[in-house]
């Protein structure tokens, strides 16, 4: 069986989830922590594949940018974990989650799906939609 994009993504998931398992067993929290933005990005990339295992360039670029932004925020939160800085009444590392990652998760992630669906994934259901209308 030839290797396709989904195979590559599943292989990446296997490697990251193995790292998570090691992190959980040996209390290495960084392995678990950085798996979160990594897996979010990979699953979004998987979800943006159409049924012919194809990506749309613009959609892929936006998903990777979203994943990169999420990773940067995770790095900033980690870097300020033991600092004395306070933003909006919260320690900086907590503030990054409450004031930045929470809105990003609640608004930007779902908007990204809306764009990818409108520009790309909806074509994947056009044929069944047409079939159900004509039947």
């Amino acid at each position: 069986m030839s290797i396709d994009r989904t195979d590559a993504l599943v292989a990446a998931i296997f490697v990251i989830v193995t790292a998570v398992t090691v992190g959980v067993l040996f209390d290495l929290w960084h392995l678990v922590y950085y798996s979160i933005p990594s897996l979010v990005t990979i699953f979004m990339l998987m979800g943006s594949l159409n049924r012919r295992d194809e990506w749309k360039t613009g959609a892929t670029a936006r998903i990777v940018s979203f994943g990169a932004a999420l990773t940067v925020l995770f790095v900033v939160s980690n870097a300020t974990l033991h600092g004395d800085g306070v933003i909006g009444g919260l320690p900086t590392s907590t503030a990054v989650f409450v004031y930045m990652i929470w809105p990003l998760a609640s608004v930007v992630g779902p908007l990204l799906f809306a764009w990818v669906y409108h520009a790309w994934l909806r074509h994947d259901v056009d044929d069944v939609e047409a079939r159900s209308v004509t039947s």
């Binding site: 998987m46 998760a105 992630g109 990818v116 669906y117 994934l121």
Partner: peptide, 24 residues
């Protein structure tokens, strides 16, 4: 705080593919 992202992921992973199945 990150759970809202789960809805984006669910729509990405399941939305179009389950809709196809439900129609077919």
């Amino acid at each position: 705080l990150l759970v809202p992202l789960a809805f984006a992921l669910s729509w990405f992973l399941l939305g179009a593919r389950l809709y196809r199945l439900a129609r077919k």
